[in-house]
Simulated assay, not measured.
Amino acid sequence: MRFFALLLVVFLLCSLPGRAQRVPDPLVDAHALSVDADRPDSLAARLTAPFRSDREKVRALFRWVAHNIAYEARGPRSVRPARDTALDGLPLDERVAYSVLRRRAGVCENYARLFNCLCRFAGIRSEMVAGYVRNEDDRSDRGLLPNHSWNAVYFDSAWHLLDATWAAGYVRANREFVRAYDEFYFLTPPEQLVRNHYPEDLRWTLLQTIPPMRELRYSPFRTMASLKYRVRAFSPAGGTIEAAPGDTLRLSVELQAPLKANSIAAEGNSADNLYFATGRHALVAPSASFGTRRLAYTYVLQPGVEWITLLCNSDGIVHYRVLPRGRSLASAAAR
């Protein structure tokens, strides 16, 4: 009876003319957790139907995903079913959404794509963010590569960050997933999320000044595009460069095989990174991209530049953090 009373309050609040105050989160949650559907379009419509504001709709979508999708910590043990050809031609997010809704389980990218798809059907802008997260259980020495996905969502004239995967629960040492909702990962303040979520596209920190990760002392931050171009090595080996404006920096990247012209399509999104427009980030192209395994880069450091991204075929493949001479990584992070 108490549950249905909560739902009644939701609908009454939403029906008030000229309502300015948003529906409280517990009431949005009560509605979200009472809804279900096996199609993303139907699910989005049912979840958002009672609400007027995008913030309330985002809350309902996020709360449903975090509550209903289990994390596949152990990985699939059985043979995956054959591809559903009826979904051919649909956007990738939507194809993934159908699969996740059918299995009610997935990994971080599945959570993020499902949330993206639900937002699209609800008329809300959302982006999947790929990046690096600190995972104390991962002891592999793979360098700084994206290992997680979360979302940025746009409402009330601003972008906001959230992570439905980490909000859903946690994984025990025996790889068992435990459902335990964590409110912290809903609309997390950017300056707090960046402490353990580092996007490969730096604009999705939503910060004007981006603190460096301590891991950069060992390696630069490689993007997913570095896998596409089969990056084998890079110089400098560490992820920080101490330099002063006017210094000439010489860097290099070694590929597994020479890149042939027109053999790999560029993503073309590096130049769209809003952070570059602040003057703190420099994009550096190699002297030659094709027909050589070793890409050579020369850059004269400009005042105010804090990050250097090396390009290959117009794609950003490696991020370096620039530090003034004599400044430690720890002091730069504490700014």
Rank of each mutant, 00 (worst) to 15 (best):
G304L: 02
G123H: 10
L227V: 07
P220L: 06
G239T: 08
L33D: 14
R293Q: 11
L249G: 06
L207M: 14
N135M: 10
A152N: 07
A5E: 04
S149H: 13
V300C: 12
R19D: 01
P303H: 07
R46A: 15
G268R: 09
G75D: 09
T309C: 13
P189H: 04
L92E: 06
L311N: 05
A265E: 15
P324H: 07
A277F: 14
I124C: 05
Y299G: 01
R74N: 10
C108G: 02
I317R: 00
P286A: 13
S78Q: 15
R103N: 08
F115P: 00
L27Q: 01
A66S: 13
F115E: 02
N68M: 12
R175K: 15
Y98E: 11
A333H: 07
T248R: 15
V178A: 05
V178I: 14
H148S: 02
T85P: 01
R120K: 15
E191G: 02
Y111A: 09
E242H: 15
L101R: 07
L16R: 15
G304V: 05
R250H: 10
A180K: 15
L144K: 07
S289R: 03
P146M: 09
G18H: 13
A112D: 00
P76M: 10
L329M: 11
L161F: 08
D201P: 03
P211M: 04
P190Q: 01
L12Y: 09
Q192E: 09
S219F: 14
V10E: 00
Q192N: 08
R52I: 09
E94I: 00
V96I: 11
D25M: 12
P220S: 03
D88P: 08
R142E: 13
G131F: 01
L161I: 05
A112W: 04
E176A: 12
A285G: 09
N196M: 09
Y154N: 06
A45R: 12
C312F: 01
N262S: 13
W159G: 02
N196K: 10
R293E: 09
P40G: 00
A180H: 14
Q208R: 15
R113V: 01
L255M: 08
R74A: 14
P40Q: 06
R250K: 14
W166M: 09
L187E: 14
F62T: 00
V107F: 07
D25H: 10
L43Q: 02
F115S: 02
A244I: 00
F155M: 11
N313R: 05
L311P: 03
D156P: 04
K260T: 07
Y154V: 03
E183R: 14
S99H: 11
V231P: 05
F234L: 08
F186P: 02
Y218K: 14
R95V: 09
A5L: 08
Y98I: 03
A265T: 13
F11M: 11
D315Y: 02
C117T: 04
F62A: 08
T85Y: 13
R95H: 05
H281D: 04
E215T: 12
P324F: 01
A266G: 14
A112M: 05
G246P: 08
V100I: 06
L323A: 07
N116H: 14
W159Y: 10
V153T: 09
T48L: 07
L274Y: 11
L101A: 08
S149F: 14
L274H: 12
A49W: 10
A49P: 03
A73P: 08
E267D: 11
A60H: 05
G75N: 12
F184L: 13
A333E: 06
H160S: 12
A66H: 00
G239M: 04
